[in-house]
Design a protein around this nucleic acid. Structure first.
Lengths: 118, 118
DNA sequence: CTAAACTCTGACAGCGATGTGAGGGTCAAG
DNA sequence: CTTGACCCTCACATCGCTGTCAGAGTTTAG
């Protein structure tokens, strides 16, 4: 599958697909022409990357976490530092979610108050 | 109150306090010397800005939302476009929270799985 | 008066994720 | 063969936030 197709299927820009490769997240095969040739499972991987990325995880971290995402993957090899990195990441994620909810409710209550006074 | 003091009290860097001013979020008085002179309520405002900011809201939006934060404020004047901007913001905030939770649980389940296989 | 600790402005740097454009191949259909 | 749609690499630009450094004035304590 060519990059344009993958882009259309995942909604991720061509630019970003190339960037993901540059960052070592995906490594598509190459044709003789130099064209990237993506496999079928790459679609799922890109989607997962996207999701994690949109949730604020740095590509840097996602790269390390990546082996877990590969369907063909060798059942996950929990390098201990990955485990602790994940704990760390989960903590900050929890914190972040907390802050978002706080802000959300703050916004919400102000909104209600404003509507009431309108 | 000088900028350094406010910085220490709020945990917001001096740089950022100046930046907030530059962006029109706060407007401290000035001494003859040019030194910024913050009022007592500025501390609360900065804290609120910080919270909203850490929750991913752009300063641009926070500025518009700001009158609501001032304790002395004239009870909130709901310009209709602010109301709809808030609705919009709340929606995206909700979406974002959703994504974060998804990612969080994704991370969590992989984490558990890895621990189990360890 | 002097020194230490603050403060001022202004500007440049960096981060991570993206866009965009230039200059140039590739491929499939007509 | 030509054309249009793709693709390649490289590199510079942008965005929002933040740090940092330089050069210079201010304030307070000794």
């Amino acid at each position: 599958m060519q990059i344009g197709m993958l882009s259309r299927r995942t909604g991720v820009s061509v630019r970003m697909l190339r960037y993901y490769e540059e960052e070592g997240l995906i490594t598509p095969a190459r044709r003789a022409s130099g064209y990237r040739d993506y496999g079928a499972d790459d679609e799922a991987i890109v989607t997962a990357i996207r999701m994690l990325s949109e949730a604020g995880l740095k590509l840097d971290f996602i790269r390390r976490f990546l082996p877990c995402l590969r369907s063909d993957g060798p059942i996950l090899h929990p390098c201990p530092d990955l485990l602790s990195a994940m704990e760390e990441e989960m903590r900050t994620l929890d914190e972040r979610i907390g802050k978002y909810r706080e802000s959300r409710s703050m916004l919400g209550s102000y909104y209600e108050e404003m509507r009431a006074h309108a």
